[in-house]
Simulated scan of single mutants.
Amino acid sequence: MPLNKENVYRKELAKLSEIFKDVEEPKRQLVEGLIQDAAFLLAENTALKELLSQTGMVKIHPKNPEMQKPVEASKQYLKNVNSYAVIIKTLNGVLMKGVIEVDDDLDEFE
């Protein structure tokens, strides 16, 4: 059953918003656009992945297998994955800034 991009977007937006609900308001407002972009990219890639499952990521010439060409959708998929990863890393950095590290017993050995 194909996934609806809008449903994927809303689900991811809700998930990320829930994760950031306890972040200080100014920081949350600052990353609001990144949260929306992450949800958008995930939804787009869900649709692209569905398409690529049918077409494959590379077109191979039927008579000459050495002749190969990437499918345009695969190029976009990879760009989106990279952008999504950068956004998630950035968002995670914002989350980690508010975490207080708990001392552990290994600190005594430093």
Score class of each variant (00 low, 15 high):
I19Y: 10
L51H: 10
P62D: 02
G98V: 03
A73K: 02
L16K: 00
A39C: 04
L41A: 01
Q76H: 07
I88F: 06
G98A: 06
D105K: 14
P26Q: 07
K49L: 12
P65D: 06
K97L: 14
E110R: 15
A14M: 04
P62Q: 07
I35F: 02
F40Y: 03
K15T: 08
Q76K: 11
S74D: 05
S74M: 09
V81C: 10
K97D: 14
L52P: 08
Y84I: 03
K79G: 08
Y77N: 09
A85S: 12
V58P: 04
E101H: 09
Q29G: 15
L41S: 00
E32F: 14
N64Y: 14
V8R: 00
L34M: 14
N45A: 01
E110H: 12
E6M: 01
V94E: 06
A73Q: 08
F20W: 06
E101M: 12
I100Q: 15
K5E: 08
K97F: 12
Y9Q: 01
N92Q: 11
V94W: 01
M96E: 13
H61D: 15
M57D: 13
Y77V: 05
A73H: 03
S74H: 09
P2H: 11
Q36T: 01
L48C: 07
V94Q: 00
I100Y: 12
Q68H: 09
Y84S: 07
F40M: 08
P2C: 08
A39F: 09
E50R: 08
L41H: 03
G98S: 11
T46I: 03
N82Q: 14
L41I: 05
E24I: 12
E25R: 10
Q36V: 10
E101P: 03
E32R: 06
L95C: 03
G93A: 02
V23P: 09
R10C: 04
K11L: 10
E50L: 08
E25A: 13
K11S: 11
Y9L: 00
A38M: 05
V102N: 10
E110V: 12
A85P: 04
L78Y: 02
N4E: 02
E6N: 13
V86D: 14
E6Q: 13
P70G: 01
I87H: 04
I100K: 12
G93T: 03
V58N: 03
A43S: 11
E72M: 12
D107G: 09
L42Q: 11
R10Q: 11
M67Y: 12
D104L: 09
P26H: 05
V81A: 10
V81Q: 14
I100N: 09
Q68P: 08
T55I: 01
F40L: 13
A38S: 07
D105I: 14
K79C: 11
F40K: 11
K27D: 15
K5C: 04
K59Q: 13
T46V: 05
M1D: 12
R28D: 07
I88Q: 01
Q36Y: 04
A38D: 07
K69C: 14
Y9A: 04
L52H: 02
K89I: 02
D104W: 06
Q36S: 13
Q68I: 10
L48N: 05
